[in-house]
Design a protein around this nucleic acid. Structure first.
Length: 612
RNA sequence: GCCGGCGUAGCUCAAUUGGCAGAGCACCAUACUUGUAAUAUGGGGGUUAUGGGUUCAAGUCCCAUCGUCGGCUCCA
């Protein structure tokens, strides 16, 4: 896989349908204006930039004389509430560019926006527009802002108890890292206090599920500043989870005709000159390592290595499709400010595969890949997902290759999506530079969207590496490559799993599937015998022979989200049974060990999400 | 990389205006032998992230570095 999966949850990236222009949207937009008024009263010298509504609230960017503090936010919020309570009307008027310049004479950012509006071709958010729009302003109370609206008619439509300022952050003017960095105040607003409280509760819930917190609590992974930031260290429990996922995927791929390969973590710089990645992406590659006068790179992707395997022998049309798969660890120099937990790291393992296919095989192979990914998601219990077809943006020229080939590949992708009945949408401009792609976007239990796997069609690398196969016509032909990674990266995928399941993994994935808890010391021996039987059928179990009392052990293991706690005392030992307690608090009572084994084996084999 | 916040025992957090670094949990020891979410008592544990500086005196103030959090930018 050469093009990155996105690292961000897509929250906010996709505005919900019907949101733009809705009452909530207008409330938030008006809150942004009221906030700007409050800030201007607080800092009369403030330079105001832009302040739109966003998916979860609104923000406004300011140039201020000093950094804002928590205390400032509280005061600004209090002032906002006072303005709202004053029931101020919002009035719109249309002005000429000259009038606008007069109104905003002391606001340099606004003047720049007016220039853009006057020239046309760009709106106040820097988005392209067809022609010069009408310039309008909105006024409430003492504050007038350059704005196309819409707004509430009167601040009485806003519930002052349903707004809250959330945080301050740096943000570049016009999103340009070369330009001045402003202070952005994020706030949120809802139609009612209850909705605001519900939103804050959801934030708390997300925080409680944060994989960075749970990962440490559950002993899955750790980081070391001595090893380096963005370089996760997998502890035994995390490694078991990850390994279980890998074994599952490896088997599914073997069944689908993929062939395993293994390649080294470094490669010569020339390899990346040939692939073209160095020229385009050396900013995010680690610097070359000099070895005896030759330069080696830590590999930022696996494709070139796999291509060299393709090229290692003459290929015939009979060899195609050739599907090479590897859990390939790659290293990318991510900016330090962008590193987060497992979802954005500097070293990670891609569940990668490259399919070398003939043009005639493209659609069929593409469909097979999509079906494989659907199957994998189904097993994972990821039912709530949709797919995004990333096509080229005809207005941009960042793409390589023949437009006719692009059209052909895009058509192949859309046809494939239609044929397998995929829930998809088309996103223009979301293609990789070398070809169109299909991304899978998963919605977790908290309704947050995450980009997972991706499938990409590539005409570029086969050409750059002069790939060929001998056709049935005894003529050389160029294969097409499909890059694909169902999980995206093991690190990121595990991070998402942790948050989705809140650490309570399905039994087949749980690092520890059952803990055996003796009522008293004299039952340890019996349970060790039981543990042996459970391990013999491949279950991951542990006898807790610590000196804690049974009640405390139950409490601790329940916190570790171990699916089953098997308690045994005199009665159980005598009956050859265990008393089964689930992490959900449910007590199944005593059952013969054999029954427990049969029950759990079936659950593990079916990769069932259930505990009983 | 940039802007801002944070960094005290393994974890969660205390420590007036700069004035002897503490608690709970965890850990270790001893006793208790327990039937479904914390048994009791005792003990050990710190160069307050690291390195400089100001001061009679720094966890507290200043600078740098590292890490981390919220964003921005980037993301093959």
């Amino acid at each position: 896989m050469c093009e990155s999966f996105s690292h961000q949850p897509l929250l906010g990236a996709i505005m919900s349908e019907g949101y733009v222009g809705s009452k909530l949207y207008r409330i938030r937009h008006s809150c942004a204006h009221i906030m700007a008024q409050a800030v201007l009263e607080y800092f009369p010298e403030a330079r105001i930039a832009i302040g739109p509504p966003i998916e979860d609230g609104f923000y406004y960017d300011f140039g201020l004389p000093r950094p804002l503090t928590e205390d400032d936010l509280a005061q600004i919020e209090a002032r906002m509430k006072a303005i709202i309570k004053a029931k101020v009307p919002f009035t719109r008027r249309e002005v000429s560019a000259a009038e606008a310049r007069q109104i905003f004479a002391s606001q340099p950012f606004k003047l720049e926006l007016i220039d853009g509006l006057e020239k046309g071709g760009m709106d106040e958010y820097g988005n392209k527009t067809a022609e010069a729009p009408v310039i309008s302003t909105y006024r409430q109370d003492t504050f007038e802002d350059l704005c196309r609206g819409p707004h509430v008619e009167n601040s009485r439509e806003i519930d002052p108890s349903a707004i809250k300022l959330m945080s301050v952050a740096g943000a570049y003017w016009r999103g340009d890292a070369e330009r001045e960095q402003l202070q952005r105040i994020y706030g949120t607003a809802f139609e009612s206090k209850a909705e605001l409280e519900d939103y804050l509760r959801r934030l708390e819930e997300a925080k409680a599920r944060d994989h960075r917190k749970l990962g440490v609590e559950l002993g899955l992974f750790t980081f070391s500043s001595l090893v380096g930031k963005g370089l996760p260290l997998w502890k035994p429990k995390g490694a078991i989870l990850r390994d279980t996922l890998e074994r599952f995927l490896r088997q599914a791929q073997l069944d689908a005709g993929y062939l395993p390969v293994v390649t080294p973590h470094i490669g010569k710089l020339d390899l990346y000159h040939t692939s073209g990645h160095y020229e385009k992406y050396n900013d995010s590659m680690y610097k070359p390592i000099d070895v005896d006068g030759e330069e080696f790179m830590l590999k930022p992707m696996n494709c070139p290595h796999h291509i060299e395997i393709y090229k290692s022998e003459p290929r015939s049309f009979r060899d195609l499709p050739l599907r090479l798969a590897e859990f390939g660890t790659v290293y990318r120099y991510e900016q330090s400010g962008e590193l987060t937990g497992l979802t954005r790291v500097r070293g990670f393992t891609v569940d990668d595969a490259h399919l070398f296919v003939s043009p005639e095989q493209l659609e069929e192979e593409f469909i097979a890949v999509v079906k494989l990914i659907q199957y994998i998601f189904e097993v994972m219990g990821f039912t709530d997902f949709r797919a995004r077809v990333g096509t080229r943006d005809p207005l941009k020229d960042k793409y390589v290759g023949d437009p006719a080939l692009w059209d052909q590949a895009t058509k192949a992708i859309i046809d494939a999506a239609d044929k397998v009945g995929l829930n998809y949408f088309v996103a223009e401009g979301e293609a990789a530079f070398y070809g169109p792609k299909l991304d899978f976007i998963f919605r977790d239990v908290l309704k947050r969207e995450w980009q997972l796997g991706t499938v990409q069609v590539d005409y570029n690398l086969p050409q750059r590496f002069q790939l060929e196969y001998m056709g049935s016509d005894n003529q050389p032909h160029r294969p097409i490559m499909i890059h694909r990674a169902p999980f995206g990266s093991m690190e990121r995928f595990v991070g998402i799993l942790i948050e989705h399941f809140a650490g309570a993994f399905p039994v087949w994935l749980a690092p520890l599937q059952a803990v055996l808890i003796p009522v008293a010391d004299r039952h340890v021996e019996y349970l060790q015998g039981v543990a042996k039987r459970l391990r013999a059928v491949g279950l991951r179990v542990q006898v807790d022979d610590g000196k804690e009392r049974m009640n405390n052990k139950i409490r601790l293991w329940q916190g570790q989200k171990v699916p089953y706690m098997l308690v045994a005392g005199d009665r159980d030992a005598e009956a050859g049974a265990v008393s089964v307690r689930l992490r959900t608090n449910e007590d199944l009572g005593a059952m013969p060990v054999e029954d427990f084994i049969n029950k759990v084996r079936a659950i593990v084999e079916n990769k069932s999400q259930a505990l009983v």
